[in-house]
Design a protein around this nucleic acid. Structure first.
Lengths: 321, 321
DNA sequence: CTAGGTGCAAATAATTTGCAGAGGC
DNA sequence: GCCTCTGCAAATTATTTGCACCTAG
């Protein structure tokens, strides 16, 4: 279950290694939740009777400076600490009844916070969202599937699900366009795009299977990532007459627009991962998309040069009656 | 500038009045920002040398219990307090450089938080959003228009602006529909609806003028309320052929749909105001919309009864090509 | 008259710090 | 050997509490 390579402990810079720190660090990184200094102190004491509170405080301070830990404040009058190593950025739902807290990430909320801040010329360094209330367990009695799984896995799961849905909708769009296009060369472009999407989709689905293999209950756990902003509207749909009449040049333009959206989307995801393998998955994918996009752009430029005339604009979406 | 009726101090329930509490309460309510217990203590001491910290702490506790004040925690290791009386719910932008903080409200963020919580069966009682970073003043040096104005006024300003925009779009929609409708009775319905909107619009614009009169710099202050979710899509536009062919019955249905959206919109706003005159403005307005809506519904029912046949469904929005 | 408010000083509670000694490099 | 870490105890900071006294209803 543990994602941490236990044999190879972290060695953050900025301080001397010592048996005490090593021990504190190891105990801390093995914990899932949000520990108070005292919680940690008690845990350490189980192994090592000769530990001082001050040492724990100093170690925590050092971990925060080194970027391994982060202070969180749930308004209890004392600080708690959570891992940042292999732990994506997130917000909190905090049960005032049982003091449990669960994590989520909403890219939509992040975007809105960004918008508000921009409009006030406020330079954001960190945003905190804390939702206080009563958790399902406390209000209904029955225990819901916990989100004790590694947040990193949950994030990867949800991001992959969204990515797969995006690819599917792209595949569907291009296939449909290929079926509808009257122009021979236009159809060819769409067909190629669809094939490309199919390839990407297979890659993603394989990643997803691999992820599921690492935690048998992964799909039962509650959703971590909330993001409706990006997946919708990437691919224009519902305007069949638009693609019927396009030639290869226009088809390429449509493809470029969609792929650019898709690339930005994955890039954005990749950036969201702190240091983790999930980041790599998405960074790789974004790179792949970018490559594809550049290929399309090159193809388009060559086509234009060959025809040595400016591209015709795609007809506007609705015809005036 | 002060919105508080200075002659008539609040008398919250649940405690005895005393000269000390009265004084603390008055000083507290006159302050704009987020006071720490010590800030308040210092302020009181300017008037009254014989005050104890304990009394200030006890008074603050009492104010929080009575719902006049709210504790906020910006992670400084001590609590701050802000008024809740005549102070709409809000989130915070906190400058880590100068420790200033400014307030905003995003209904969109609130909606997203609600969605996340619902999906986890989490019962929300309060949500905290804190954006840490550097304010405009600290990063550019030049001082931006401050938001020291009463939040209540800012809220009213922004809500009214959105409401006016909504009414305008309604007016435009109905006017256009009246112009386009072929059916005589359908046109009449749209015309009446447009007239009604014009009346509402005038009311709102008058309220807005009155608001501006109360603070000459009100329009210079930064936006407080962020809400793109509601205003858009209330009135269907861009489908001219839809309204061309409608009869009075169908026109009424369209009107009902739009007015219902509008009513819900204003009701939602009204609910957002804590205890304030702004709440009243919007509650009144929501009531007016509701009345209008019920009138339309009645008219519709009568029309249906007269014709004693089920209403024809409005044609779907886009024709398949 | 009596419950509740007030001041003072002492108590708590979380966290930090001074200092002497131990340990890593 | 030097510099940093560690333990212990004392200090600091924000807040609360016990207690004797005072004041409003």
């Amino acid at each position: 279950m543990s994602i941490l390579p236990t044999s190879q402990p972290l060695k953050p810079v900025g301080g001397k290694r010592s048996s005490k720190r090593e021990r504190i660090l190891n105990v801390f990184l093995r914990q899932e939740g949000h520990l108070s200094a005292d919680d940690l102190f008690d845990l350490i004491k189980q192994d090592d009777q000769h530990i001082s509170r001050a040492t724990v405080y100093r170690a925590l301070q050092w971990m925060v400076e080194a970027g391994i830990a982060q202070k969180v404040d749930f308004g209890e009058g004392r600080s708690r600490f959570e891992r940042t190593y292999r732990h994506p950025r997130h917000y909190h739902l905090i049960c005032k009844n049982c003091n449990s807290s669960s994590e989520f990430l909403s890219s939509d909320i992040e975007m809105l916070i960004e918008e508000v801040s921009t409009s006030r010329n406020f330079d954001v360094s960190r945003s905190v969202v804390q939702v206080y209330g009563t958790c399902e367990k406390c209000s209904t009695g029955k225990s819901a599937p916990g989100d004790e799984g590694h947040t990193e896995l949950l994030f990867a799961r949800d991001a992959l699900q969204i990515a797969i849905a995006t690819e599917r909708s792209g595949l569907e769009f291009y296939s449909r366009a290929a079926r509808l296009a009257h122009d021979q060369r236009g159809r060819k472009v769409f067909q190629d795009l669809a094939d490309e999407e199919k390839k990407h989709l297979a890659t993603l689905e394989k990643s997803y299977e691999e992820l599921l293999a690492r935690d048998p209950h992964l799909e039962d756990r509650p959703r971590f990532l909330f993001f409706k902003g990006a997946a919708s509207g990437l691919f224009a749909t519902g305007a069949d007459e638009l693609v019927q009449g396009v030639d290869d040049q226009q088809a390429l333009l449509i493809g470029i627009r969609c792929e650019r959206g898709s690339h930005n989307f994955f890039k954005k995801y990749a950036e969201k991962f702190e240091d983790s393998e999930g980041k790599q998955i998405f960074a790789d994918f974004a790179a792949e998309e970018k490559e594809h996009l550049e290929l399309l752009l090159k193809e388009y430029r060559e086509l234009v040069k060959r025809q040595s005339q400016p591209a015709k604009r795609v007809a506007s979406r609705t015809r005036k009656a």
